[in-house]
Amino acid sequence: MQWAASKPSMIEKEEKILITAVINGEQQKYSILVDRYKDYSFSIAVKIIKDHPLAEEIVMDAFIKAYQNLHKFNFDSKFSTWLYRIVVNTTLSYKRKTKLPTEEIVDYDLHLSVHNTALEDQDRSKFIRLAIDKLSDTDAALITLFYLNECSLIEVGKIMSIPVSTVKVKLFRARKRMARMLTEILQKETILL
């Protein structure tokens, strides 16, 4: 269990100094923020867009947007919350504009190297990834934001611009859907064997 005690506030203080320095012209200090949040930002984007190279481009755009609008950041939330909101919005708006084709995961050909009847860890991972890929954009974003242990329910609500009570309900339903999808995937796998 994570305790949001002294560590986040120290990071927030450090980030405030960094952000002020960037706004005052020390451009290179922005690379520290990019390094710190690039992987989590990418994780969020790739779970929505489901395309690694494209997700990297989108996250790059999001970081540049964040840089251009850094003077508008009021320090009333964590920098990561504000940044992830930009990442989610950029990814969702890109997806809406381009209307990327999606394929049904049910047609995904599972070639498994299963020995005996017990599932190996790597197969379990594959199933979890498949289940996440089947989720809607919002559910995928919610699950990613919450389960990366980076964001509390309040922060997820701020990032997705929805009330905390709605986040709780949506997360609960997303997990139930995932559980149902995992059951379907596992049942198909059993039939294939």
């Binding site: 690039k38 992987d39 990418f42 994780s43 790739v46 779970k47 690694h52 990297e56 996250v59 379990r124 991972s125 979890i128 990834r129 996440i132 699950i143 990613t144 389960y147 990366l148 242990n149």
Partner: peptide, 10 residues
């Protein structure tokens, strides 16, 4: 498990 599965790297 989800935490492990969700982590990606650029």
């Amino acid at each position: 498990k989800l935490n492990q599965e969700l982590k990606e790297q650029v």
